[in-house]
Each structure stands twice: as structure tokens, then as C-alpha cells.
């Protein structure tokens, strides 16, 4: 299994290739379409082939962008996917996007049938857990420039795929600050 950048948001495995037994359903989203809204329960994992999406939630009155999906990345309302409780997350397409989705029960089925599938699923989870940890460290950085540097090094692709105003929100800085830091 090739491990490109252990800190990257994009998955090091292509789930479409390693989970061939699973039926992946193609999905086209227009800008502004939602994959999931608060109150719904996540039944799928999505693999993004093209486009850009963002996951956000509200804390008190504030909207917070917490994650992006773009080419070769996995996106879903992860906690809800695992605990099967209604989510508090919204996932919105930022532009026209193509995704493949697979049902949770299909993953469970193939994992029971082959150890190889199980190890691939574990690799996928390892990637996900790593991104959550990186995100946690991001937020702890007091200096906005350091937060930006971490994400730039980890996922330069984000800056090509996602409108900067959402990256600024993700980095917890104003759009002006992000633009200034990128230009310096």
C-alpha cells in the first residue's frame, strides 16, 4: 500500500479500487446541493472524484466550516456514520461535484467476507483518524500564519479546489488575513 503523505487529507488508498465488491453509486451534485443536513443519519461514505464540498456545523449562533471534500478524498458525516445517530453536520457542494457513495452495510458485509477488505477498511480509518488529529493540532495553533502553514504543507491541493473564503473560515481567520498571508 502506497503511503504518500501521512498527513494529507486525501486518502492513500482508492476505495473504488480496493472495494470492488461493493456497489458504488455515482452521484452528481450542483452547487448548493446538500449531501446531508442536521437531523439526518449518515448511511454512506462518499468518495469525491471531482468538485469541492464543505462540511459545516453551527456552534451557538456561529457557522463553522470543519472539513473539505475534493478530488480523491473521502467525506461523510463521520460520527453519525459510526454511531447511527442524527448528525449535527451539513455537507454542501461548493460547485458541481461528482461523487461515488457506498452503503455502510455493504462495507460491513465485505469486511466479514475477507480479511483483505478488513485491512483496507482499517487503512481507510487510519487515514481518517490522522486527519482528525491534525485538525485538532491546527486549532491549537495561536498564530494564524502557523495554522495556514500546516494546511498548506499538508494539503496544497485545497487551495486550488476550494474558494478561499471557506478556507479562511476553516482556518479561523478572516478572508482578508488569509489573502494577506498568502501574498506575503
Amino acid at each position: 500500500m502506497e503511503q504518500k503523505n501521512p498527513k494529507a487529507f486525501t486518502s492513500s488508498i482508492n476505495p473504488l479500487e480496493v472495494f470492488k465488491e461493493i456497489e458504488w453509486k455515482a452521484l452528481e451534485l450542483k452547487r448548493g446541493d446538500f449531501l446531508i443536513k442536521a437531523g439526518q443519519t449518515e448511511k454512506y461514505l462518499y468518495y469525491v472524484v471531482s468538485g469541492a464540498l464543505r462540511a459545516y456545523t453551527y456552534v451557538d449562533e456561529e457557522e463553522h466550516t470543519i472539513r473539505f471534500g475534493y478530488k480523491n478524498s473521502i467525506i461523510a458525516a463521520i460520527p453519525s456514520f459510526f454511531n447511527e445517530q442524527p448528525t449535527d453536520i451539513y455537507i454542501e457542494a461548493l460547485r458541481k461535484s461528482t461523487l461515488y457513495r457506498a452503503k455502510k452495510i455493504d462495507f460491513e458485509k465485505v469486511m466479514q467476507e475477507s480479511v483483505k477488505s478488513l485491512s483496507y477498511y482499517n487503512a481507510l480509518l487510519k487515514d481518517l483518524i490522522a486527519t482528525f488529529y491534525e485538525r485538532e493540532i491546527d486549532i491549537l495553533q495561536k498564530d494564524p500564519a502557523k495554522r495556514l502553514k500546516r494546511v498548506l504543507e499538508r494539503s496544497p491541493q485545497v487551495f486550488q479546489e476550494v474558494p478561499h473564503k471557506y478556507i479562511a473560515a476553516y482556518l479561523r481567520m478572516s478572508a482578508e488575513t488569509l489573502s494577506r498571508l498568502l501574498n506575503s
Binding site: 456552534v59 442524527p86 448528525t87 451539513y90
Partner: peptide, 10 residues
């Protein structure tokens, strides 16, 4: 309403 719901689910 969305803000309210997202909060309530937390």
C-alpha cells in the same frame, strides 16, 4: 431553524 437544530443535536 437550522442553527437551532444543529445546536440542539449537540
Amino acid at each position: 431553524i437550522e442553527k437551532c437544530l444543529s445546536n440542539a443535536l449537540k
